[in-house]
Amino acid sequence: MATINLNINGKSQVVDVDPKTPLLWVLREHLNLVGTKYGCGIAQCGACTVHLEGNAVRSCSVPVSTVSNKKITTIEGLSENGDHPVQKAWLEHDVSQCGYCQTGQIMSAVALLKSNPAPTDAQIETAMSGNICRCGTYLRIKDAIRSVNTQR
C-alpha cells in the first residue's frame, strides 16, 4: 500500500492503495466517481476513458502511481451542470440507448475536439474507434460531434 496524491477534477485527493491499482478502480471504488465505467480492463473498449493532462487515456490500464499530482478529469468534472457543449450535443441528438459506454465516448470526443476543433468525418471515425458502443449508436455520436464542430 502507498499514499498517493491525486489531482482529480481540480481537487486534491489522497488515497492509500496498492500503487499498481488501475486509476479506474481508484476513481470508482475509493473516490466514488462511478461515471467512469469498467468494460474490458485491457484498454480495448474505451468505457473507462478519462483525461490525463487533457489527453484521453484508458483509466483501466493506467496504474494510479503513475499519475500522482497529474491533472485528471473525469466525466463528473467535465462541467459544473452537465452543460459542456459535447454533453449538450449528446442530449440534443438523443444519442444514448443503454448509456453505459457514453461517458467514455464523451470523454474521447471532448479530447478529440480539443486537439482538433473541426475534425473531418474520417478523423472522427479514427479518434472514436477505440470506444465500443454495443447498442450501435455510432451514427448519432458522429452527428453529435459534428454539431459541436459546426457550432464553433
Binding site: V34, K37, E76, G82, Q87, L91, S96, Q102, T103
Partner: peptide
C-alpha cells in the same frame, strides 16, 4: 411525438444508474 430519453442528462453526466455502480 419524439421525446428525449428521460435519463439522458444522468447518462451524460455519469450518475450512478447501473447495477455495477451500487454501493
Amino acid at each position: 411525438s419524439s421525446s428525449r430519453n428521460v435519463e439522458g442528462s444522468k447518462i451524460v453526466t455519469g450518475k450512478p444508474l447501473f447495477g455495477i455502480d451500487s454501493k
